[in-house]
Write a protein that binds this DNA or RNA. Structure first.
Length: 415
RNA sequence: GUGGGUGUAGCUCAGGUGGUAGAGCAGCGGACUGUGGAUCCGCGAGUCGGGGGUUCAAGUCCCCUCACCCACCCCA
């Protein structure tokens, strides 16, 4: 025990039954994405550090949360702290942006951030999300927000809060930034220490500060400084959301933690034990591709949600998905019965879940099946084999019926 | 990163002012040697997270360390 090894801080082992449930959750998420025309994309767990540095020097994620290391050749690599940049990088690397004008991707996988762990906040967490590349239409923003909502709604979650904002583009954001700086300059001394730094490096993020939030009620709002195009885009999007019945509220202080966003930014939160927990966030990133080295503008829009947080909220809501296929426990009760079942097992291609208890007697086997939550138990010993049958016991009702042993395989393989 | 809390059998936890560990649940066995979930009976040695110190003696005091949790921060 003294030299027993433990998992690194902030990581988790997913064991049954939680791992089973997570599998169901991931499958359901993927179903939603796939059914709306999204394709799976998988990128490396680590990338050249350079890629993530382009996310913005002023962001906390880049500044102090990256798992960066050198490989044996001295190259600086970083465990991905988010997945949007890798997806865009992969798209550019494969020149996909030139072969089609619109690409829809989805992903589910781990991300790494060196943070002080807490519940719902891990050093290795899992995110799922989508990225739509190649269109700057507000209909895409609408689609992304809708798809995000669809994922959560597919689990029956209702009490969701969507916050929306527009932070402009490279034309109008400088104007807003100037106005904000002017407003803040008079009160820098009142701000918290973090904000004093943000004021210099990335003033927009001051808006997001929870400490100083109250002091900033009368701060200039991004939407009041939007250029005509951005204003039109934002209004169009809001109109679409209204038309489609997507509930949202405009949050003038919503900025998001990554610098690559422009125009639309949004967050989805849910009520967990009285507090609003952020489940997902996203927005438009029309300049990111060029930041990464594209020779032309490749507009994009997407969202990312936290898998662990989805699990938490589902657990709280009592809405965790459950196995939908029947579970059948097979009990060969004698040596002869076991040997008779070997060939069947070898050939078996079941649609149900079949769990064979090779070494339990009837009593223990039923108990085992009971604990697993089995729907049926099929048992056969010498007695049954004499008659060429097996017995199917319904674990809910306790009713038993017989089945010809030669039909057993077909029965186990039936839906 | 800052401040605070917790860490005892598989799980949830009890263990005033230090004297070498308990309960409930679960599990296992039996009553029921081929029939589960009920009931009854029996079964618990776990280096009290790890290391060091104080002491005749520490789960109980001190220091260090690790992990989890809460708030802040941040965000998924």
């Amino acid at each position: 025990m003294a030299d027993k090894l433990f998992k690194p801080r902030g990581t988790q082992d997913f064991l049954p039954p939680m791992s089973d449930t997570l599998e169901l959750i991931k499958a359901k998420i993927a179903d939603t994405f796939r059914s709306l025309g999204y394709h799976l994309i998988e990128t490396p767990i680590f990338e050249h550090t350079e890629l993530f540095l382009r996310l913005g020097e002023a962001t906390d994620i880049v500044q102090k949360e990256m798992y960066t290391f050198k490989d044996r050749k001295g190259r600086s690599l970083t465990l991905r702290p988010e997945i949007t940049a890798p997806v865009v990088r992969a798209l550019l690397e494969a020149n996909l942006h030139k072969t089609s004008d619109l690409k829809r991707f989805y992903y589910i996988g781990p991300i790494f951030r060196y943070e002080k762990p807490q519940k719902g906040r891990y050093r290795q967490a899992h995110q799922f999300g989508i990225e739509v590349l190649g269109s700057s239409s507000p209909f895409i923003d609408f689609e992304v927000i809708s798809v995000a909502m669809k994922v959560y709604e597919s689990f029956g979650l209702k009490d969701l809060k969507v916050s929306l904002n527009s932070i402009g583009c490279k034309v109008c954001r400088p104007r807003y930034r100037e106005a904000l700086l002017e407003y803040l300059s008079g009160k820098v001394h009142e701000l918290c220490d973090d904000c004093k730094v943000r004021y210099k490096r990335n003033p927009l993020r001051v808006l997001d500060c929870k400490v100083d939030r109250d002091k900033l009620r009368d701060a200039p709002k991004p939407i009041d400084y939007l250029c005509d195009d951005c204003r039109a885009h934002f209004n169009h999007l809001k109109g679409l959301l209204d038309k489609a019945g997507v509930p949202y509220e405009v949050d003038h202080h919503l900025v998001r933690g990554l610098d690559y966003y422009n125009r639309t930014v949004f967050e989805i939160r849910a009520n967990l034990a009285g507090k609003y927990l952020e489940l997902a966030g996203g927005g438009r990133y029309d300049y990111l591709a060029q930041e990464i080295g594209a020779d032309e503008e490749v507009p994009g829009c997407g969202f990312a949600g936290g898998l662990e947080r989805l699990y938490m909220i589902l657990e709280e809501a009592g809405a965790l998905p459950e196995r939908s296929v029947p579970l059948v426990v097979v009990l060969p009760l004698s040596e002869r019965a076991r040997e008779n079942f070997v060939a069947i097992f070898r050939e078996l291609r079941p649609k149900k879940v079949i769990s064979v208890a090779w070494d339990l007697n009837l009593r223990k086997g039923l108990r085992y099946a009971n604990r697993l939550g089995a729907d049926e138990v099929i048992f056969f010993g010498d007695r049954e084999l004499e008659k060429g049958i097996a017995v199917i016991r319904d674990m809910k009702t306790g009713d038993q019926r017989e089945i010809q042993f030669r039909d057993l395989k077909a029965y186990l393989e039936s839906g």
